[in-house]
């Protein structure tokens, strides 16, 4: 990076750090938060909202906007943080996360600006995205549908109902992103109900599958700039990520799934984050 000036945009790394700080703060709120899966998809979400999605924060219902569906709704803290940092939400509102009267529930509500569909029950998002993609084609709009799924979520059968239909209808305006952090509540996805060979499974369903490092800015840039990966096919981006990414205390740990951070733990996690240590 060149030397920053007062008007320079913050770097991706600086923005990503802020997103993670917000997530930890929500984790320190009275009800805690799904920290691990929020930290794992933070870079993907940040990249989507700052470089990929065509949208207008001041006009969230702009008809030609790209639609985003957070199918893994429990990563709401990451979404709220990104929405706040990109102008959809006041940053101060993050302080209200899960507090009585707040718009910011543990899983996203559609009355939050920038949230298209309320999610939280897994296995719904890809069908919603498929419907949106079909509608955009029918309406002749250039808008695309992006759906972020958890990897454990892929155990829901409805995901594969949607995957079959989207490929059948050749929806190349539909992009699924799998936050492949490898962990679900009880441990490794491969020990629970195995997902691998994951890319091959998507390909066998008729999708164009790309496997990437979901934390690498330049890889994200290159991948999302080249969509659709194949004309006439929906694309799935399997983003290999680390659960709890950025906080050594939580990285790769299943216990990071849902945590209420004590003041002591919160300080330690923040210190971890700033030190930039990753496993």
């Amino acid at each position: 990076m060149t030397a920053s000036t007062e008007t320079a945009q913050p770097s991706f790394a600086e923005q990503a750090l802020r997103i993670r700080e917000h997530i930890l703060k929500m984790g320190a709120s009275p009800h805690g938060a799904h920290i691990g899966g929020s930290l794992s998809c933070a870079d993907v979400l940040l990249h989507l909202y700052t470089r990929v999605l065509d949208g207008r924060p001041q006009e969230p219902d702009w008809p030609n906007r790209d639609r985003f569906v957070l199918s893994k709704g429990h990563a709401a803290p990451a979404l709220y943080a990104v929405l706040a940092e990109t102008g959809y939400l006041p940053v101060e509102e993050l302080e209200t996360y899960t507090q009585p009267g707040s718009r910011l529930a543990g899983h996203p509500l559609s009355r939050v600006p920038g949230v298209e569909f309320p999610t939280g029950s897994l296995g719904h998002g890809l069908s919603l995205g498929t419907g949106v993609a079909l509608a955009m084609r029918r309406l002749g709009r250039p808008a695309r549908a992006f759906v972020l799924l958890g990897d454990g979520e892929l155990q829901e059968g409805s995901v594969w109902e949607a995957a079959m239909a989207a490929a059948h209808y050749r929806l190349d305006n539909l992009v699924a992103i799998v936050d492949r952090n490898g962990l679900q509540i009880t441990g490794s996805t491969e020990d629970c109900v195995a997902l691998e060979p994951l890319a091959d499974r998507w390909r066998s369903f008729g999708w164009s599958a790309v496997e990437i490092d979901g934390h690498d800015e330049s890889v994200l840039e290159k991948t999302f700039a080249a969509l659709p990966a194949r004309t006439g096919k929906p694309t799935v981006i399997i983003a290999r990520t680390v659960k709890g990414r950025g906080v050594a205390l939580f990285e790769g740990k299943k216990k990071s799934h849902s945590v209420q951070l004590s003041p002591r733990l919160y300080q330690r996690a923040k210190k971890d984050l700033r030190s930039g240590r990753t496993t």
Binding site: S127, A135, R138, S158, A162, A165
Partner: peptide, 25 residues
Amino acid sequence: AQYVNVGIAEANLLGVCAGLAHSGL
């Protein structure tokens, strides 16, 4: 152009319909 058959998959049927309706159809 106004018809799709999503197959024998009712969960997806209703999710797809929600996506279509949300988009103005």
